[in-house]
Design a protein around this nucleic acid. Structure first.
Lengths: 138, 138
DNA sequence: CAGATTATCTGGACTCTGTCCAGATAGCGG
DNA sequence: CCGCTATCTGGACAGAGTCCAGATAATCTG
């Protein structure tokens, strides 16, 4: 990890480490507000701007991945091996990871590319989590 | 169209029609600000709130579809036959439609559904449009 | 067609996320 | 230990959209 930071020409500051460890905590997909609070809890205090600066820097370095589900504010997750997708509950906005489906999915290479150079196909599955399902029935 | 409105128990007001026709204008995928301006041009004046109210009502009625690409504000498009996806330029945020790929794409039915009842698989392709490509090279 | 009902509109205050700015701090290479 | 800058801090500010309460105006009824 330290190596990753070094490679990206990122200094190892207390604030940066606080942000990183806050995201790695239980459960993934944290929003900026959560991270601000978690980091402050670790350091005593930290400016909101420093958190945003770090999130941006870490995303740019490829250490974090940022997702912006419709209806939620931006969420950050540690970038794992990769290219998994997300399944989001329409009721409570809970997010769970979905491993990338095996095999080169044909749907990820549209033939009509309109001249665009496509570099990523992002998939978001929408549904209702078990809890919200039972809540709806009531 | 009028029937659609009636079916959804929506009144036919001048404001509502202005919103609808503003979206149908050349090019699809309009944001709220564009619609506010377009509607005001047609009516002389219209409150921002009325525009939002209508957009929400029309989306709820299934007459409009709302997309929220990461990095852009919400965009609205008239709902066509359907289930096409979107290809967005990372440079200028331009959005073009991509027809749903033929055949039941296997990747759209994750086996590990975590107990969720999935009702939609949304796909967003990211890339660079022709124009932004040449701009980058310069 | 007049009256009643209530979906819609209006306008302004306000919230949430996130950004801009400029000066103060503090990692890290030498 | 020094100096260069990447980072931080704090506060003002901006964009997008929501909340509220009263005024309007489609539709429905008779």
């Amino acid at each position: 990890m330290l190596q990753l930071l070094r490679q990206s020409n990122l200094r190892m500051t207390a604030q940066r480490l606080a942000v990183l460890s806050s995201i790695d905590a239980e459960g993934r997909h944290k929003d900026a507000e959560f991270i601000v609070n978690a980091a402050r809890q670790r350091l005593g205090s930290m400016s909101r701007q420093a958190v945003y600066d770090n999130l941006h820097a870490l995303v740019a370095a490829g250490i974090l991945r940022r997702i912006e589900p419709a209806g939620s504010s931006a969420l950050y997750e540690t970038r794992v091996a990769d290219n998994h997708h997300h399944l989001i509950c329409r009721g409570c906005q809970a997010v769970v990871d979905i491993d990338c489906v095996v095999g080169a999915a044909p749907c990820l290479e549209p033939d009509q590319n309109h001249g665009y150079v496509i570099d990523e196909a992002e998939i978001v599955f929408w549904g209702l989590c078990p809890e919200c399902q039972s809540q709806t029935k009531k």
